[in-house]
Design a protein around this nucleic acid. Structure first.
Length: 225
DNA sequence: GCGACAG
DNA sequence: ATCTTGTCGC
């Protein structure tokens, strides 16, 4: 991974051009190997947002036991602009991945996959960069229209945008706000949806992402009660 | 011009 | 994302 050869603090116009170019390389068909490890990826911020904190939690599959983790803190160089999240969080995320000796078999990223204006959400960007199967798990919608899914765990509806199916609005627990699942790379919408549901055991967020969320967030450090 | 807008 | 305790409901 030619990390040193890349600059991430581009202007919006340049970032947009990069997204459009990379979007063509995203694979929406299943191309996964045996999945023995599933990782959750998320970011948090410290010091008034000047530092980005990326967290990765690697879980075994099946079993969902934590078998690895990584944490990296990097100076924040890109502002939060809807549609350009990867340029803000990728530097820290890649720094965290570099401390892992083995890449996970499947990545669950907090954020969208192809459910993005130019079909290049952070899950796509990360999946392409690491050449790993990746799934986007958003807590809210960026783009797309959908019908409210039923109230029970497993209920779902299609997320569409510009006449295309870009993901699934999935209920991962009874009576909780649904998640927005979309392919990141090398995973189909159907498979992505199934993996998120299979990893959703006790929280709204799938286990790996929930764990990464806690590690990335400053509140995850508070003492248990 | 106006509203929407991942984390 | 982050600042933040208790409280209401399934």
């Amino acid at each position: 991974m030619p990390r040193a050869l890349h600059r991430w603090n581009l202007d919006i116009a340049a970032a947009r051009a990069v997204q459009s170019r990379l979007a063509d390389r995203v694979e929406t068909q299943d191309r996964l190997g045996p999945v023995h490890t599933v990782a959750g990826v998320d970011c948090g911020f410290e010091h008034n947002g000047t530092v980005t904190r990326a967290a990765i939690i690697v879980k075994s599959w099946p079993g969902l036991e934590t078998v690895g983790s990584a944490l990296a803190r990097v100076p924040t160089t890109f502002p939060y602009v809807p549609g350009y999240l990867s340029f803000r969080e990728m530097p820290a995320i890649l720094a965290a991945f570099e401390t892992l000796d083995t890449l996970p078999d499947l990545l669950l990223c907090d954020g969208q996959g192809i459910a993005h204006p130019r079909r290049l959400g952070i899950a796509c960007h990360l999946g392409l960069w690491l050449d790993r199967p990746a799934i986007g798990v958003g807590k809210s919608r960026l783009v797309g229209e959908f019908d409210e899914p039923g109230p029970a765990k497993g209920d779902r509806s299609a997320l569409r945008h510009n006449g295309a199916n870009i993901g699934t609005v999935l209920r991962t627990r009874d009576n909780v706000r649904p998640l927005f699942v979309s392919p990141g790379h090398r995973v189909s919408t159907e498979t992505a949806t199934q993996w998120v549901l299979d990893c959703a055991t006790r929280y709204r967020l799938p286990e790996p992402v929930h764990a990464a969320d806690r590690l990335a967030s400053s509140r995850g450090h508070r003492k248990p009660g």
